[in-house]
Amino acid sequence: MDIYLPNSAFLGNIDPFLRQMNLSEPTKLKITANKKWISVHPAVLCIIAALGLNMKPVDIGCERLEAKSKHYLKRMGLFRLLNIESDISVTEHEPAGRFIPLTKIINSEELTRFITDIIPLLHLGPEQADSIKYVVSELVRNVLEHSGSKQGAVVSAQYYRKSNTIRIGIADTGVGIKKTINNAYPAETHLEAIRLALMPGVTGTTQRIGGTDYNAGAGLFFIKSIAQVNREFFMIFSGDAMYKLLRNKPDMRRFTLHGDPFKDRHSKREDCPHWQGTVVGVDISLNSTKEFSILLDLIRDAYMKTIKERKKEEYRAPRFI
């Protein structure tokens, strides 16, 4: 497998990065990078870390990095997590740089600890923290419950001062969305499985509206909605398919959450190299996180509307013959 770190790969322009990944020969990983500058979304680092965790350190090769920003990879803990050597030296600050280094989470207790720890690391106030804790908890629990990944979830986050956003990445190398959804729904493609997974009330654990006692099938819909209300990006990549929620225009009054993600302003593709597992990236603006309460009102309306539509679709009149 070959991964090339470009000078820029964020959710808005992540498509070329995903398409150029060479995921063949899964027993070896070669990491190369732009010679001048590396600036990437935490989801990109999570992808590399998730791949590397499935192999021995000796099978991971990272070229000597020359980019001025190479220390970023070290600070984010890429080499530490993969247990590989690096000649990059950084002055380890007290982690006041407002980032969450790459972290592997394999069980519920680790997740609870992680959520408690991240808020002070990101220097967030209580109102801003709600959305972040919410997103991380729901995404990681999805991995722990559904992915079957032996390596659990790899998570990372970074604060960007210029845009005043927190960008969160999470990746796993589990069964992927299609296999999970196919336990209850006949999605034929990875993209269709992603579409179903984003619809409120759809879970891979049952076809029953209302879900099971443990799964409502609303986690991803809530997260996509948080990004949408914040007018930020949300990206989900599994198998050969990628769905990306595009930024909304800053006009809250004309704002609608849709149960069907294909009705939102989005881009999608089915020509990515096959990712065995799931990757999610989400950006959350701190300028508008005070709107979490408004978000919940919008979610409630969209959620109920979708449930009613689904019930209507499933309604069958008696046949009198």
């Binding site: 923290a129 919410y134 729901e138 629990r141 799964n215 409502a216 609303a218 986690g219």
Partner: peptide
């Protein structure tokens, strides 16, 4: 309690209502 996820509340009470 400052916050809760929908998944937590669902696991807490949905089956009671069902």
């Amino acid at each position: 309690i400052e916050g809760a996820t929908q998944s937590f509340i669902h696991a807490l009470i949905s089956d009671v209502l069902r």
